[in-house]
């Protein structure tokens, strides 16, 4: 391409982004922008699908039919979120099968939070409250992301996630009003999920090399630490209302900042989980791989049937 044309395209792209308008699939975009989006949207889609597993662990055992229905509807929503996020990624020139292949071969990541186990039914509530809550903090700004298909997908995802969060919180309120055994389950689950939830926002800003570029491209709107602070500030009063103590002795109100001070997560644990040594990394990928491989003959049959139908209709 002639140098002049190239720089004109870049200028136009920069102007669209700067004006808070949307880049659409047919528009020219820098290769690195495209690659960043593919990576991020794929990781997000993978997280929805892998994220069905920890809660799915309790579907067959949910202790009331109402909770079973709510949990099943949530799992169904997550599969749906995965579907439309994969569709958003496909507008960038990749396809779902290729992304799934990268997931099960470990070449693409999903949110590390899903590498933690769900050990009691209260975990279902805590995942709704804390994990979906943190996801909402991360995702609501993405509704204004510069890439149109991703931004539009996120509007729908966020609405549904906020409902999931409320359902989770409502479950916890019910358990806290229940028996001592139920309250114990909630406290135990909060103790286990609090720090991993804080780590969902990624490493501290100083160790997050991609943040500046993503913010310049208006993919990202806030730094990891800003979002983490926002999450803590919103969650502390909810914990008080619920009647649980968050497992951080350093948690205290800072009058000057008008925010809560909080302790430092164990970043070495996050690194371990990211590197594949989390409590459930192997199980999560194994399950996804098994579903994909066990289903191969079914997908092949559907393709063969469609081809035969087309042939007969000629």
């Amino acid at each position: 391409m002639v140098q002049q044309e190239q720089s004109a395209l870049e200028e136009r792209f920069d102007a669209v982004v700067a004006a808070e308008q949307r880049i659409e699939p047919r528009d020219w975009m820098p290769d690195a922008y495209r690659a960043t989006l593919v990576r991020q949207i794929a990781q997000h889609a993978h997280s929805e699908i892998i994220g069905m597993q920890p809660e799915g662990n309790w579907l067959t055992r949910a202790p009331s039919l109402r909770r079973k229905a709510i949990l099943l509807a949530k799992a169904q929503d997550e599969a749906g979120h995965g579907l439309y996020l994969y569709a958003a990624a496909e507008t960038l020139g990749v396809d779902r099968a290729e992304l799934t292949e990268k997931l099960i071969s470990g070449r693409q990541k999903y949110s590390s939070i899903f590498n933690y186990p769900t050990l009691t039914f209260a975990d279902v509530g805590v995942i709704g409250w804390l994990v979906d809550g943190a996801a909402i903090c991360n995702q609501v700004p993405l509704c204004r992301c510069s890439y149109g298909p991703y931004a539009r997908a996120m509007v729908r995802v966020c609405k549904e996630e906020s409902f999931h969060q409320r359902q989770g919180y409502e479950l916890l309120m019910t358990l806290m009003r229940g028996t001592e055994g139920q309250r114990r389950m909630v406290r135990d689950a909060v103790d286990r999920w609090w720090w991993p939830s804080l780590m969902m926002f990624g490493p501290p800003d100083g160790d997050s090399p991609n943040t500046a570029q993503s913010m310049a491209w208006r993919i990202k709107r806030h730094t990891n630490d800003e979002l983490r602070q926002r999450f803590v500030d919103m969650t502390v009063p909810q914990a008080e209302h619920l009647g649980v103590t968050l497992p951080d002795p350093a948690l205290s109100w800072n009058e000057e900042r008008g925010s809560w001070d909080f302790g430092e997560p164990d970043w070495s644990e996050l690194q371990q989980v990211i590197k594949g040594n989390g409590p459930c990394n192997a199980e999560r990928i194994d399950r996804r791989r098994a579903a994909h491989e066990d289903g191969a003959w079914v997908r092949e049959a559907a393709v063969a049937y469609a081809a035969k139908q087309e042939e007969r209709n000629v």
Binding site: L59, A75, G82, L83, V298
Partner: peptide, 29 residues
């Protein structure tokens, strides 16, 4: 049907099987 959750051959089938499970669960209730 719920036991298929996270084990279905395709994501569209995850959605569909959960949907069938929800219908039947609703009838059962």
């Amino acid at each position: 049907l719920i036991e298929w959750c996270t084990r279905a051959p395709e994501l569209e089938e995850e959605v569909a099987l959960a949907n069938l499970g929800l219908d039947l669960l609703g009838q059962a209730r």
